[in-house]
Nucleic acid binder design. Sequence first.
DNA 1: AAGCCAGGCTAACAGTGTTAGCCTGGCGGT
DNA 2: ACCGCCAGGCTAACACTGTTAGCCTGGCTT
Lengths: 193, 193
Amino acid sequence: MNAVAGTFGPGANEGRRVGPSNARKGEVIRAARRLLQEEGPRGLTMRRLARRLGIKAPSLYKHLPGRPAIEAELREAAWVELALLLRTAASGPGPGAASRLLGAYRRAARAEPHLYRLAMTGLSGPAPTSDAVARVAGAFRLVAEDPVQSGALWGLAHGLAMLELDGRLPAGAGTDLAWERAASSFEGISGPH
Amino acid sequence: MNAVAGTFGPGANEGRRVGPSNARKGEVIRAARRLLQEEGPRGLTMRRLARRLGIKAPSLYKHLPGRPAIEAELREAAWVELALLLRTAASGPGPGAASRLLGAYRRAARAEPHLYRLAMTGLSGPAPTSDAVARVAGAFRLVAEDPVQSGALWGLAHGLAMLELDGRLPAGAGTDLAWERAASSFEGISGPH
DNA sequence: AAGCCAGGCTAACAGTGTTAGCCTGGCGGT
DNA sequence: ACCGCCAGGCTAACACTGTTAGCCTGGCTT
């Protein structure tokens, strides 16, 4: 049935032996995401995840090859969504693009901090990530066409995000200021285009 | 490197019930650090650590209350050493200070990547860290007195370091360029004073 | 000489990811 | 209408993890 059928999947045929139903796999991933968001990385365990779905842990392996695969999936989703958010934020009219880009970045990181951390720390993932990384880089290049420059901006965004998530930046308004100042300093350097 | 193991305690009296000999504790910590460096965070396990010291895992608890304590100790040491390195790097004559600061930061991160990651990700530590964090911040303020500005520089350094450690920056010379560009862009902003 | 205790040990428990093997209900094809 | 397949669940078990309880001993202190 899945041999050719593959109800969806634009050319996506994955001959995984683990289980042909992508629908259930999607549910597992979404449950994992919620679990991660609510209970943190240490709460994301196979048995707990299974219990949320009303099944037992080994049954998860019918849908995914293991826990690293779950993390990889979450990581991938995070990068894809981040790329999308950044792209729409930065593609507006000229001035203020860098500010909006950083704003979107910060918002994404704060919306799901654990997911952001998981996505960024390449510790346990089998593959770093797909070309979603390239799309994120592309979004940064919208506001600083020079690759080096845009890389620096990316570094700034990531660094500020991590420091903020760890609660290391000056509390409250100080954190806002750091982001704003970062944005404005870059706004001046690379002509909005 | 023995910054930790050396003369202990400016007024260091810790009436820990776990074991009064700080010397052995120092050995444990140093072994843990080497183990982390050589085998990564997943290799840093109580049994493996114990085996390196020629003892069994439960004996470790005579010197430290648990694994989180080991991580906390390593984290603290990393921050202290980082603060020292940054301070000496940035305290030279005026121009080029930011560049030297970033260089030192990068060098520290690359020298012991796992340690750097452990130090920065506040995930499993009981306390974030002591005032060593403040000293690191102080080093950054040497090259950008404005706290917001120096915070941005810190964010830039941290972000670039993490991206480089994860292998996400353009390979080889591209990475060097990103750091240099970051340094020079900041060099211009805050007058070396 | 007596004894204290630092610092080792073994056994064990709860929880982790993961594998092997069994079972069953519903759906497709004949 | 039946039969068989197999998606998708299950239990048992293994090799790990951190951690606790309780025992023992050799050397230093008194």
